[in-house]
Design a protein around this nucleic acid. Structure first.
Lengths: 106, 106
DNA sequence: CGTGTAAGGAATTCTGACACG
DNA sequence: CGTGTAAGGAATTCTGACACG
């Protein structure tokens, strides 16, 4: 995991080129907690391809009139749903192997 | 193909961060025809992840004392070998299906 | 609330050149 | 030949703020 898709290496200018979103909007969505670029040593933002895909989804929601607040909640719910699903899988695995998740790991 | 690995979206500063190579060297390898970044509308270079991997290979060769000239020839030979191999495969496919590569495509 | 814009400073990138070896 | 460096200009990015609605 954490392949090319998730490596944060793209500057905001290129993100703008790729998405058509203004730099203002891109920064604003970060301010609202929808997206989390990393920073270079000297402070310029770095985005990943998956950030770019997320930005496009966000922009589409905004076009439908959804507020950033709502978008954020939706994203958190997706997260929760995914984690629940993973929990179920893990539960099934545990039951199958009749063992704890991390036995005897100090 | 032409997935994330091959999209040219990384500025030279980030390439430097990722490879440790000086910007001077990165530009020089372009000058010698070893690497081919694209440009933004206003002229700044953009590299792909595969460019970065290639740069690392080039740097390793250079450490062994191989000249850029040699490295370039080696790269061209790899290309040729690969194309020959593809040709063989294609020939086998053609023989197998007793057909031309692109029949009746206008 | 979401986005545009003007503002000023700091950091980035570019090219062509000189240096050394 | 391969790489460093200083030079000057142009473009980028950053933050905080005002505007409108």
């Amino acid at each position: 995991m954490a392949s090319y898709r998730d490596k944060k290496v793209i500057t905001i200018g290129i993100v703008h080129e790729l998405t058509g979103l203004s730099e203002r909007r891109i920064r604003y969505y970060e301010e609202r907690g929808l997206i989390f670029p990393e920073r270079t040593t000297r402070g310029t933002r770095k985005y990943s391809f998956s950030d770019i895909e997320l930005l496009i989804k966000i922009a589409n929601k905004r076009e439908e009139g959804v507020q950033t607040n709502e978008i954020k909640k939706d994203m958190q719910n997706e997260r929760k749903k995914k984690n629940m699903h993973d929990g179920i899988i893990q539960g099934q695995l545990n039951a199958h192997f009749k063992t704890n998740s991390r036995p005897n790991i100090k």
